[in-house]
Structure formats: C-alpha cells, structure tokens
C-alpha cells in the first residue's frame, strides 16, 4: 500500500531509496552492455579499435566454420547436460521427498547440495584429479581388471559433461524436491481411491504437477551451462571449443573486443530465444 503523501505531489523521498540501486545498475550493467553493443560494430586494426560501423563481426560468425561449430558444440553440450541432469536428479528428489522420513529430509538435502558450494575452479580441478589417466577412476578400473589401458577421460567432451552434470544434478534436485514436497498428499490418496496404481499416479498426477519445477531447473541449467567458461576450459581442454572459450580466446590472445562482443551478443540472443520458448512454463510457477 502506498503511503499517503504528506508533502504533496513533488515528493522526491521515495526516489532517494530506489535511485542508488537504479543508478548502479544503469552505470555498471546497462552502460557496459550498450558499450559492448557499439564495440561489436567496430573493428580492431593493429592495437587500436576503429569505429567502422559494420556488421562484419556478425558476418564473420556465420562465415567461419569454427565459430559456428563452437555455437553448435555449446548447444549440444548444454542440451545433453540438461537432459542427463534431469534424468538423474528427479529420482533422487523423489526418493528424498517420498522415502526419507521428514525429519531426515532436510539433512539429506543439505548433504546432496553441499559440494554445490565449492567454487567452479576447485570443483573442475577435483574432477581432473578423478578422471586423469592415473587418477582414481582409472586406477580403480585397472585394479579390478576391467580395463588394461587407462581410459583417456580427462580433456574430453565427456569430462566436460561429467563436470557439468555433477553441478546441475545438485541444483535440479533442489528445485524438483521443492516442487514435490509442495504437492498435497491428498492428490495421491484420491488417485489411489479412484483405482490408479502407483505408476499411473506418477505419470498422470505427480509428473505433470512437477513440470514447473523441472522447467525452472532446466532453464537455470541451460543459462548457467551455456555461459560457463571454467568447466569446459579445465575439463574439456582445447579440442572442442564452446562459445565462452571462443569469446575468452578473442579477449585473451588478441584483445579483439569487437569480435568478442559480437559473439557474446549472439550467445545472449540464443539464451533469449530459449527463454521465450520456455516462458510459458516458467510463468506457471508463479500461479
């Protein structure tokens, strides 16, 4: 409810509360974004940025095979990670919500997401330790005689996907669990009374009702996964570049900000398109 304005219409007090945050966002988020959009139309000549005002950097994206390939790699990895993470996280969330006594659920959940709080860098490094040629997994496999030669797991797309799935299983367990525990127990009883078996109840009642939780988690996974540089850089190596790696290459090697800006904006366009496609389900959650 609005407070009755005691000083008449010209009262500027409310603005004093909102202005600092708004100005901060404009200065350090909107302006940099505008600068990036402008720079993406420039080009780098020698060590100088030249205002050439052309879409050459965007044209380059479609003309150069390895630029386009990086986007395809990004989409492929992100899609695989999202689907795998949902498939692995859903049963765990369900077990936590259904099979675990209520007083233990919270502890189970906190444990399930504890490694979530390791930093990106550390988590990826830890997976290198696990997947390295002489790492834990390979030594264990060789120890029990399953393989003779170490599997080259590190520095591959598989390693990137494992690293990502590890992170997002935790995230999705959280969002799906939150959705599952909100479902009234009566729905299940009603379904049973009407003759539905446990499988039918799950397919027709539980699964549709948890779709919002899945979609929110899937969207978060998509956004965070497609924008991440660390995991593919540490675990995937340089064989199959994804977009963030390509962007960082432009900045790091050549300080080519125009190309990097154009690539970043193209990446944002893709994320926005996915958001628009998912918006229908994302809104459901608020209802």
């Amino acid at each position: 409810m609005a407070i009755v304005d005691r000083r008449g219409r010209g009262d500027m007090r409310p603005w004093a509360f909102v202005a600092p945050a708004l100005l901060w966002t404009i200065a350090f988020f909107c302006v940099p974004f505008a600068v990036m959009a402008v720079v993406s139309l420039w080009e780098r000549v020698g060590t100088e940025l030249v205002a050439s005002w052309s879409f050459a950097n965007y044209a380059k994206f479609f003309a150069r095979g390895h630029f386009l390939q990086a986007m395809l790699n990004s989409l492929e990895v992100t899609l695989i990670v999202t689907v795998l993470s949902i498939l692995l996280a859903y049963p765990l969330a369900w077990i936590l919500a259904e099979k675990v006594p209520p007083r233990w659920q919270r502890i189970g959940l906190v444990c399930a997401i504890l490694p979530f709080w390791t930093s990106y860098v550390v988590r990826s490094y830890a997976w290198v330790l696990v997947l390295a040629n002489n790492g834990v997994v390979n030594q264990a496999l060789q120890g029990v005689g399953l393989v003779d030669e170490p599997l080259s797991l590190a520095n591959s797309r598989t390693a990137t996907i494992i690293g990502f799935v590890h992170f997002f299983v935790m995230l999705l367990t959280l969002t799906i669990y939150a959705n599952l525990v909100q479902l009234p127990k009566n729905y299940r009883r009603a379904a049973a009374d009407l003759g539905a078996g446990s499988v039918a109840t799950f397919v027709h009642i539980i699964l549709p009702l948890t779709l919002p939780g899945i979609m929110v988690g899937a969207f978060l996974t998509f956004v965070l996964c497609i924008g991440d540089y660390i995991t593919p850089q540490i675990l995937g190596g340089n064989s199959e570049l994804v977009m963030p790696q390509l962007i960082m290459l432009q900045i790091g090697r050549r300080a080519d900000f125009p190309t990097a800006s154009a690539l970043a904006i193209l990446l944002m366009v893709v994320v926005t398109l996915v958001y628009v496609a998912c918006a229908r389900w994302l809104k459901l959650e608020r209802a």
């Binding site: 409310p14 603005w15 924008g227 970043a264 944002m268 994320v271």
Partner: peptide, 30 residues
C-alpha cells in the same frame, strides 16, 4: 511507495540475473 514505472524499475534491477557472468565481466572490462 507508489512510484511511476515501478514494474520497469523492478525488471531493470533484476535484469543482471539473466545475463551470464562472462558477459557482465566483459562489458565492464571494455
């Protein structure tokens, strides 16, 4: 308080949540 354009202000304030850290960092760097 009832402010004009409150919806827009809220949208602006939470907008950075939807953009990846890499892009925010790069914009600031440039």
């Amino acid at each position: 308080f009832r402010l004009p354009g409150a919806g827009l202000q809220k949208a602006l304030l939470v907008a950075p949540l939807t953009v990846s850290y890499l892009i925010i960092g790069m914009g600031l760097l440039i």
